[in-house]
Design a binder for these strands. Structure first.
Length: 1078
RNA sequence: GGGUGAUUAGCUCAGUUGGCUAGAGCGACUCGUUUACACCGAGUAGGUCACAGGUUCGAGUCCUGUAUCACCCACCA
């Protein structure tokens, strides 16, 4: 159902392509015409791509534009190639990120915090934000030309996706892969939630090493008068110390093992123990730690992951001294008896305790930083501070709030990704060719691949391939060192964890354990109260709908609910069960994306057709966060990979090599570029800048809304010496708002602060190319007739044969590069083909005679070349090619030549990809045409040098051997056309006219009949002579080397001999001409 | 601390198994508005391929080392 073209004739259009005037109508036509829609029952090999769902936190930036351009190129190419192609769009709820931006906005606009609202009310506010930005994002994608199947748009938190999350969680819970654990997590004190390992980013911080003296004592706390010195960067955590450790191999210090210290401030008596982990001091060591170490390590299991592990080994108590916001607190794990004792000093307790408690009161409620200062001061005052040394070291920071991460002891849900069925399966999925040698168990399993999936394999389980290949290493290393995944987040915005819990009494726990031993699950909870009996009831009535788990240590009973069945919920909530308040890590739902977008857990036709998807196209930063987890989940739940190809593309940076980001104000809104240069220009530029090695640098300019001129915004230097752009730009005393700042909702334009759009000169490349294509088509269309006679290749001119040959090669080049995800060369190859070959040479060759009856075959060839060019360019420049396509269809509907006869189609978006017959490759034409080009180049050089007016027709004659002359003779007209000369003689007898300029070449000599200054001619010939001599010297050097002639491949040696002969012949001529000049 | 990538013309970047007399776009300079295109055409200039060694008949390309930059990973004594 195609709409007939309604455009004006092209002749009425201006010489420049105006994207803003053309793109909306074309977009509308595609959307109305269902151009992007896919049908699972349609013909064609399946091809599918899942969009990496953008976060609904903010509008898309140029990084997204690149990512989606590449996917659209692949999708459109697949669709045109006859595949049953679908591109599945959607957005991500981005739990922590979205909640954070909304919290910020609510605080700014209403002065209220999240906790001032009911949970549902605040979620409503986030939902409104999500709706707004999802709409913005969708509109951006559409205007970029992204050919997503919009009927299938998904959101990671909509109903179908929620169903998938619940099902996946339930299955993993039942399979014993999800567990509750109390351990150290990466805690973000600002957003007050746990973070996964890869949500933590390290930054180097200039800090200090503090050397604190701890008094040594006996087990009863009697001081010996001695002391040990611990070294730490975090003095404030000493409040939670429960031991001091020494390396047993550390001769001078090992003697302290078995003694005790009385922890200052707290007066806690803690042991000195031996542990290999402790670094032995060595002032000459390469290891900074060994140089700085004192040999005594304070052990704070609640606030340091290593200390936690030492604590586990030695069964130390864990004392948490902080509240969730990171302030010092006595209410989150500090032993009450210790505190109470300190609170009320008596005669039985050493007097210092009272003093300590009084000081501790000063600490309570202080931030980590303030507490650090206070404690250091205290140690100094007590003469217990031995030394302070500056030390630069890495500190983990929240990727969201950028606050320093606090290792924090808390209860969380974990997914056991370390299980072989998850991480092991992901490792084995990596294609053999990309694996590195490894001793990891996954590769040495006795029965590999058998245990990978819950079900038998239903598709590929191996062959995962990264492009560029080096990223396979990131993937492998990640899985070899993976730790269990903390999946709970203390947020409101996200998938609520579908687990209810019940705290059992000792009696209940006893019964439960007994029943567990007897494996009589049915009698669970018999003879106990309602709350506990509920589980029995539910277990019997809904055996497939709930999963039960008992936590021995905490006596908690957990019930995982598969779906929100009313009776189950009623029973649970009515009998004292409490639903877990936390939500799941965002990436849990993202990990299911290739399944959930296609209907899983239902076995839909779409799921079986389009999963595995064809390729995942993303940036390297989320290989661990996302790629890994999709691979593990798809393998686990479906028994096959979610995709085999992973294409990792470049990142876009600003002109200073900085990552673009909203907070730095250097982000560019794709809509600004579409506004100024057009979607095609943006797409083409981004694609052609995408190489496999380099990140893309995109200098950011701004358009001044006051004057309209473009300028480079000022950059200010931030503390780290990093250059960042100011979000609100100042210029000539007037301030303005960048459209990116506007989009973030932080600033709004006004009369005082009008809107300044970002831009970058880089996009002129694509814009110029679109205009060039536009004009080449205008030329063609003004010369083509509706029905040109059929052309037979044998009677085509040299230029026709040459360009058709090149066209075939262009098709092959496009196919080859797209298959290899080599977008730079796909775009670059077509640029060169259209601009240099079609426009500069072919059109210039046929231009003068194109309207004559004799040129009918050239017109047919031209129409065909244009047809193919538009098809090949459509994936990257869909708008302008579609617009020109309707013009071409209107003027010359019947195109094609023998061997290249593309199928007609009303709309380019649905047109078939060209298939080339290699018989059209004309080696003779490909050899002769460049000779013409060479001669033309030489003549043009002379004309330019001699300042011959371009319009003046100059006589030209060629001196060459008969054989060569015969070859050239049919194409003399071409030379005349391209050089504006008249050929007066060709052959071995041609003599040089008096005063003529000489043009030398490998096949002969040309004489340009112009009066030329002798000195200039001599200069030009001498220059050529020098070039030839240099070349000859190189070639001779190579040939005189016996080892070269004997060892190098024979065809190379022959090539060198030919080159030498040609250079020598030309040098002879040049010298002869030089002699004649004198 | 470990890893990855980069360093090529004034700028931004190509350069696939070693064969290069090293390319493109932008910018610069000269000429030109001949009805597809001045968002254009024709032409010119501009590079000891970061540095130092090595392998080879031959190195921008492979190896070793050094320097600088970027990013990723690592348990913040």
């Amino acid at each position: 159902m195609s709409t007939p073209p309604t455009h004006k004739p092209l002749a009425d259009l201006p010489p420049s392509y105006r994207p803003a005037e053309e793109e909306p109508a074309i977009l509308e036509r595609w959307l109305q015409g269902d151009a992007y829609q896919a049908n699972a029952s349609a013909d064609g090999d399946p091809y599918s791509i899942c969009i990496p769902p953008p976060n609904v936190t903010a509008p898309l930036h140029l990084g997204h534009a690149l990512n989606n351009t590449l996917q659209d190129i692949l999708t459109r190419h697949a669709r045109m190639s006859g595949k049953n192609a679908v591109w599945l769009p959607g957005t991500d709820h981005a739990g922590i990120a979205t909640q954070t931006v909304v919290e910020k906005r609510v605080l700014a606009e209403e002065g209220k915090r999240r906790t001032d609202f009911e949970r549902d009310a605040f979620i409503g506010k986030i939902q409104a934000w999500k709706d707004e930005y999802e709409a913005t994002i969708t509109d951006q994608l559409k205007q970029m030309g992204c050919s997503c199947d919009w009927d299938r748009q998904a959101f990671t938190m909509d109903d179908p996706r929620a169903k998938a999350v619940r099902e996946a969680f339930f299955q993993l819970f039942k399979d014993g892969l999800i567990y509750r654990g109390k351990r150290l997590v990466n805690w973000d004190p600002v957003t007050q939630t746990a973070l996964a390992d890869d949500e933590v980013e390290s930054k180097d911080i200039d800090g200090n090493f503090y050397y604190l003296k701890y008094p040594v004592c006996d087990a009863e706390g009697n001081l010996t008068g001695d002391h040990v010195t611990v070294a730490t960067t975090r003095p404030e955590t000493m409040l939670g110390d429960t031991a001091v450790a020494v390396n047993p191999k550390d001769e001078p210090r090992a003697k302290y093992i078995g003694q005790f210290v009385k922890l200052p401030i707290c007066d806690r008596v803690i042991p000195i123990l031996g542990d290999d982990y402790v670094v032995i001091p060595d002032p000459d060591s390469d290891d900074a730690k060994a140089r700085m170490a004192s040999g005594f390590l304070k052990v704070t299991p609640a606030h340091d992951t290593n200390d936690y592990e030492i604590g586990q080994r030695h069964d130390l108590p864990i004392i948490n001294v902080m509240a969730p916001d990171g302030s010092i607190s006595k209410d989150h794990g500090w032993p009450a008896e210790e505190w109470d004792a300190a609170e009320k000093p008596t005669d039985d307790v050493p007097s210092s305790v009272g003093f300590v408690a009084a000081f501790a009161h000063e600490l309570l409620g202080q931030t980590r930083e303030a507490a650090r200062k206070a404690i250091v001061r205290w140690f100094k005052d007590q003469d217990l501070l031995a030394e302070v040394k500056p030390y630069r070291h890495a500190v983990g920071h929240s990727y969201r709030s950028h606050a320093a991460i606090e290792p924090y002891y808390s209860d969380q849900w974990y997914l056991k990704v370390t299980d072989d069925k998850l991480a092991g399966a992901a490792l084995r999925a990596l294609d053999e060719s990309q694996r590195e040698a490894s001793s990891h168990d996954a590769f040495n399993a006795k029965t590999p691949s058998r245990q990978d999936a819950k079900e038998e394999p239903t598709g590929p389980t191996t062959g995962l391939t990264f492009t560029p290949p080096r990223y396979a290493k990131t993937f492998q290393t990640w899985h070899e060192n993976i730790r269990d995944w903390c999946i709970s987040r203390q947020l409101w915005w996200g998938h609520r964890i579908p687990v209810w819990s019940l705290q059992l009494t000792d009696q209940q726990a006893h019964i439960f354990r007994k029943n567990l031993d007897n494996k009589t699950d049915d009698s669970l909870g018999e003879g106990t109260d309602d709350a506990f009996a509920t589980s029995t009831f539910l277990k019997k009535k809904y055996p497939d709908e709930i999963g039960l788990r008992f936590n021995e240590a905490t006596r908690q009973l957990f019930c995982c609910v598969r779906e929100d069945h009313p009776e189950i919920l009623r029973k649970l909530s009515g009998t004292g069960w409490v639903q877990d308040p936390d939500v799941l890590d965002t990436w849990f739902s993202s990990a299911l994306w290739p399944m959930s977008t296609l209907g899983w857990p239902e076995r839909t036709p779409e799921l079986d057709l389009w999963n595995p998807t064809s390729v995942l196209c993303t940036a390297r930063e989320i290989i661990t966060l996302w790629v890994s987890r999709m691979v593990m989940f798809n393998l686990y739940f479906l028994g096959r990979l979610p995709f085999k190809d992973v294409f990792i593309h470049a990142m876009i940076q600003d002109g200073h090599g900085q990552k673009m980001s909203k907070s730095l104000g250097n982000g560019v809104d794709p809509m600004d570029i579409i506004h100024s240069h057009g979607a095609d220009a943006m797409r083409f530029t981004l694609a052609s800048m995408t190489t496999q090695t380099q990140d893309v640098r995109m200098p950011v300019d701004m358009v001044d809304p006051h004057s309209g001129e473009t300028f480079t915004p000022k950059f200010i230097t931030a503390s780290g010496g990093v250059k960042v752009a100011a979000p609100t730009q100042e210029r000539d005393g007037k301030s303005m708002v960048s459209s990116y700042g506007l989009a973030s909702g932080e600033v709004k334009p006004s009369d005082d602060q009008p809107l300044a759009r970002n831009t970058s000169e880089k996009f002129e490349l694509g814009q110029r190319f679109a205009t060039k294509l536009w004009n080449a088509t205008r030329f063609a269309l003004s010369n083509l007739a509706e029905a040109e006679p059929d052309a037979v290749t044998s009677s085509l001119s040299l230029a026709d044969k040459w360009i058709l040959s090149k066209t075939v090669r262009a098709i092959e080049h496009a196919d080859k590069t797209l298959k290899a995800y080599d977008f730079h060369n796909y775009a670059g190859g077509l640029y060169e083909f259209v601009w240099n070959e079609v426009c500069d040479w072919y059109i210039e060759s046929v231009k003068p005679d194109i309207k004559t009856p004799e040129a009918a075959k050239s017109r047919k060839a031209l129409a065909t070349v244009l047809d193919v060019s538009l098809r090949l360019l459509h994936p990257v420049m869909p708008f302008v090619t579609e617009r020109l396509w309707s013009g071409l269809n209107a003027v010359c509907p019947q195109r094609g030549v023998l061997g290249l006869d593309p199928v007609e189609c009303d709309e380019l978006v649905k047109a078939p990809w060209p298939i080339a017959d290699r018989a059209l490759i004309d080696l003779e034409a490909e050899e002769v045409f460049p000779r013409v080009q060479h001669v033309v180049g030489m003549v043009r050089e002379v004309r330019a040098g001699a300042k011959v007016p371009p319009r003046e027709v100059v006589d030209f004659s060629l001196h060459m051997e008969d054989a060569e002359a015969e070859r050239v003779r049919p194409n003399l007209h071409l030379v005349e056309t391209l050089t504006n000369t008249k050929m007066v003689a060709v052959g071995p007898d041609t003599e040089k006219p008096e005063g003529a300029a000489v043009v030398t070449g490998p096949a002969g000599i040309g004489y340009l009949h112009v009066q030329i200054d002798t000195a200039e001619e001599a200069e030009r010939l001498n220059k050529r002579k020098a070039e030839l001599e240099k070349s000859l010297k190189t070639l001779d050097g190579r040939l005189s080397n016996e080892k070269y002639t004997s060892k190098a491949p024979s065809h190379l040696v022959q090539q060198t001999r030919d080159q030498r002969a040609a250079a020598a012949a030309e040098l002879d001529e040049v010298e002869r001409q030089l002699a004649a000049l004198e």
